[in-house]
Nucleic acid binder design. Structure first.
Lengths: 164, 164
DNA sequence: AATGAAAAACTACGCGT
DNA sequence: ACGCGTAGTTTTTCATT
């Protein structure tokens, strides 16, 4: 895990509220020079804390207003079957995300489709063409709220080892 | 739903692969002048197709390597209870996202925590302090794959009405 | 939708602490 | 090791065509 000081965290917070904030504005917001802000931002990227910047697209506006979560049971749940299904389903254009989980289901597939008919077709045409799919349970998503500002846990005030 | 022509879609694809691509590079990639690319990008934002740019942070690197999905049943599932729980849970620092769903559960709460102990504490301390929570089922997320490139459905080639 | 010029931002480098 | 200022380069932005 990366060692983040207060300046790193402040920069993360700024960029999380808008990943396209200019370096100059980040610097002003956190109270350091643009040079320092740029050094830190690059360091965060280089250390892998920041993986990149994603575009937040309105799914309804691009013609995918209906979301669903589909719980899938794979039988037998062998590594071969799990990985094959994961690789296949995560590449479908309707798929927004795939959770590989413990519990009574093996997968939760998050999809966004144009309408209920497409959702039904996804479940009964696409998913069931996979022989390893033993069971499917579909839940329509009425609302999906995201927290775009995950922060380090509170008690992570460990300064770098040997730091002052 | 927004009317997107091929240029809009091409710009979306470019920015989805990296929301911090410079306008100049977007223009070069899609084959128009920087001015045109900027006009279109601004239009996408103004029309609400693009809601913003998000920072992709590595959760393990910021000290939250353990993810889980927690299915929650609310009893009675009145509007009052549903909205109260939604507003409360979506603001917790451990919460990454909240799905409000149809089906046998009312919510799926996606959390990222420092370790299994924190997960257990989240479920038995935090969630159960809410009187409307009737039932909870926790699944550990082994892997979460996301598709960051949602695209308009194929058959959405309707040019703008009256367009040429 | 493109051109070209002005304004703003980015970034490399070296200095000081 | 860390933060800062300067200066050269790139990018953004806008008036004009």
């Amino acid at each position: 895990m990366a060692n983040l000081d207060e300046l790193d965290k402040a920069i993360l917070r700024e960029l999380q509220s808008d990943a396209r904030t200019t370096n100059r504005d980040v610097a002003a917001a956190v109270g350091v020079s643009p040079t320092t802000a740029l050094d830190r931002t690059r360091s965060l990227k280089q250390r892998g804390v920041v993986k990149g910047a994603l575009l937040d697209v309105d799914l309804a506006q691009i013609g995918r207003p209906v979301q669903a979560l589909i719980a899938v049971r794979i039988r037998p749940p062998s590594r071969h079957n799990i990985e094959a299904f994961r690789n296949w389903v995560s590449r479908l254009p309707d798929t927004l995300g795939v959770f590989v989980t413990s519990g009574s289901e093996d997968f939760l597939v998050h999809v966004a489709v144009p309408d209920n008919e497409s959702l039904y077709a996804f479940v009964i045409d696409r998913l069931t063409e996979r022989p390893e799919v033993a069971d499917v349970r579909t839940s329509v998503v009425y609302e999906h709220i995201r927290n775009h500002h995950p922060s380090p846990p509170e008690n992570t005030t460990s300064p770098r080892p040997g730091g002052r």
